Amino acid sequence: MPPRTHTSHPFIRAAGLGLAAAALGLTLAACSPQNTLNTVTSTGGLNVIQNVRYGPAPRNLMDVYAPKNVHNAPVVLFIHGGSWQNGSKDGHKFVGVSLARAGYITGVMNYRLAPEHRYPEYIQDAAAALRVLRDSATSYGGSPDNLFVMGHSAGGFNAVEVVDNARWLREAGVPVSAVRGVIGVAGPYTYDFRGEPTALAFPVGGNPDDIMPNRHVRPDAPPNLLLVAANDTTVDPYNGVTMNAALKKAGVPSELKVLPGLNHITIIAAMARPLNFLGDTRKQVIDFIETRKLQ
């Protein structure tokens, strides 16, 4: 593992839920800890619509988790991590259920993966998914003008980029005023990918100054919540510090929260309601949405 420095702020590597599993003793043979977590996550009492298509590519699918009997509920789009080269919505059922239990219509999306698909294709996927989720919000009991976007790790980059850059929502036909907030969890918002394994997710010869979310924050962006794991050895926590500074400079409301005792994996595992004891992730996310949602 290369050293983490504040000069390059490298995004070192992605991982599964293995570290969280070790901490929790979830070591069932022949079954990944992530699948174990999803297996014990019940969808009882929720409406679950799987594989909602938002585009023509095979991975242009999302699962929607919706509480029953809601009206004008907030709508959240969640984007998984995985170095832009791995990961799946199927591994994040626990996030969809957790947010739906809080009263939110939640779409958990797949996106096209690198190296076949590089920036900005996966960002355009996020915008397209948000457009479809917004268009269908009322059918699930949600409000099309009460949107939030959330992502973990590489998905945190996607979430912040798709909302804070003026280009993507405009191109997808999503009114910027409809997005009430964006939540980045341990995201690599400001690092030099050149020479890193994750360079495969960016254009050949690409310049971080033209790509990183902190380089092009629109002044009318909605509030940002940036959650950082104090013990993160995968994405340098300084990414959150630098992104927060760029938002503040542009006049965008931003909160940077460093969560103690958590690492790159447990910060998202703590979204699962049975794992809230790990840390404050779920509470921070819900408090932010409750504060920023249309009343």
Rank of each mutant, 00 (worst) to 15 (best):
P2N: 14
P2S: 13
P2A: 12
P10Y: 04
L24C: 11
L26P: 07
A30R: 14
A30P: 11
T36P: 11
L37T: 02
L37V: 04
T43S: 04
I49F: 13
R53K: 14
P56K: 12
A57Y: 11
P58D: 11
R59G: 06
N60V: 07
L61A: 06
A66G: 03
P67C: 11
N69P: 10
H71Y: 15
A73Q: 04
V76S: 01
G87A: 05
G87C: 05
S88D: 04
D90C: 07
H92K: 01
H92L: 01
V95W: 00
V97T: 00
V97G: 00
L99G: 01
A102S: 13
Y104S: 03
T106F: 01
N110T: 07
H117Q: 11
P120K: 06
Y122L: 11
D125M: 06
A128D: 12
A128M: 13
L133P: 02
R134T: 12
T138Q: 10
H152I: 05
S153E: 04
G155F: 00
N158F: 10
E161F: 04
V185G: 02
V185A: 02
F193Y: 10
A199F: 08
A201M: 08
F202Q: 05
N207R: 12
M212S: 09
D220Y: 12
A221C: 09
N224P: 09
N231M: 12
N239C: 12
G240D: 07
G240F: 03
G240R: 03
T242H: 14
A250N: 08
G251Y: 09
V252W: 07
P253L: 10
L259Q: 03
G261W: 05
P274E: 03
L275Y: 05
L278D: 02
R282P: 06
I286V: 15
D287A: 14
T291Q: 15
T291Y: 15
